[in-house]
Design a protein around this nucleic acid. Structure first.
Lengths: 128, 128
DNA sequence: TCATATAGGGATAAATTTATCCCCTATTGT
DNA sequence: ACAATAGGGGATAAATTTATCCCTATATGA
C-alpha cells in the first residue's frame, strides 16, 4: 500500500469521518452493500465505472476500518460476501443525508457543475 | 485551472454533492464561515495546515458553485468577507451530521485509523 | 482443449489534488 | 526608505489517488 508522507489531522469529527469515507467509491460501496448487493461481482456490475482493482482496494480499506466484514465461502468458483458491521450500519443515515441533499438540489447542482465544464468547451466556436 | 480528462458522473445525489463538497478543506471552510469566520485571514488562522493558496482556490470553487458569496470592501489594505448563500446554508445540517457521527465514534475511529499507520511503524523494533 | 465465471494481486502509468515558492498591489507606521 | 498588513495569482513540485495491464487458481460447459 501507499505510505503516507503527510500525517493526517484527527482533531475533530470531520477529520475522522473523512479518513474512513474518502475514496471515490467508498460511499457507494457502503450503500450498495447496505441495500443487499453483497458479492464483489455484483458490486462491480453496480459500479461499472470503477475498475475491479480499485473496488477491491477500497473494500479492503472499509474492512480494515471495521465498516464491513468479508465472508469467504470455500467453494469453486470462489464466493465472497460483504456485509456491513453494526458500526458500518451507523454511518448509513449519514450517507442517506448526503444523497438526499444532492437529490433535493439536483437541478441547481447540475447547473452550477456543468457551468464549469461547458464554459471551457465554448472555446470551440458554436455552429448555429 | 486544471482541466479534467475524466468526465465525472452526475447520476445520483451522491455524485452531485460529491462534486461540490470534495476538496480537502471545503467542508471546514463552509463550517467556519457558517460560525462567523468570514475573512480570508481568519479562515487561514483557523485552518493553519492549509496553505493560503489552496484555501483561495477552494473558496473560489465554493463561490462558483453558489455555496458562498464574496464581498469586497474597497479599502486599503483590502478587506474581503465570505458568507454562505441561502443555498450554502442548506448544506450545513448535512455537514453537522458528518461531524456528529465522527464525534460520536471518535474513540473507535481513532483506533482503527491509527492501527494502519502504527502497524507499519512496528517494523522498527520496539524497545521495552 | 478452450472459453467462462469468480476472486484477487503486482507493477506501473496516468490523473488529480495539494503544497511550495515567489511575486504584485497600496497604504500606514517607524 | 522599508517593513507590515491584507488579499491574490502564476509556475512548478510533490503527494496521493485511480486506472490499466497482465497474471494466478479451479471447476464447468461447449
Amino acid at each position: 500500500m501507499y505510505e503516507r508522507k503527510i500525517i493526517p489531522n484527527l482533531n475533530c469529527g470531520l477529520d475522522l469521518i473523512g479518513e474512513v469515507l474518502y475514496g471515490k467509491w467508498k460511499i457507494r460501496l457502503l450503500w450498495f452493500i447496505h441495500i443487499g448487493h453483497k458479492r464483489p461481482s455484483e458490486l462491480q456490475r453496480k459500479i461499472p465505472d470503477a475498475s475491479r482493482r480499485v473496488l477491491n482496494i477500497q473494500l479492503k480499506e472499509l474492512e480494515e476500518h471495521g465498516l464491513v466484514t468479508r465472508k469467504i465461502y470455500p467453494v469453486v468458483p470462489p464466493k465472497v460476501e460483504y456485509s456491513l458491521t453494526e458500526f458500518g450500519e451507523t454511518v448509513i443515515p449519514v450517507i442517506a443525508a448526503l444523497g438526499q441533499w444532492g437529490d433535493e438540489h439536483q437541478e441547481r447542482l447540475r447547473e452550477v457543475i456543468l457551468k464549469q465544464t461547458v464554459s471551457s468547451d465554448l472555446d470551440v466556436p458554436l455552429i448555429i
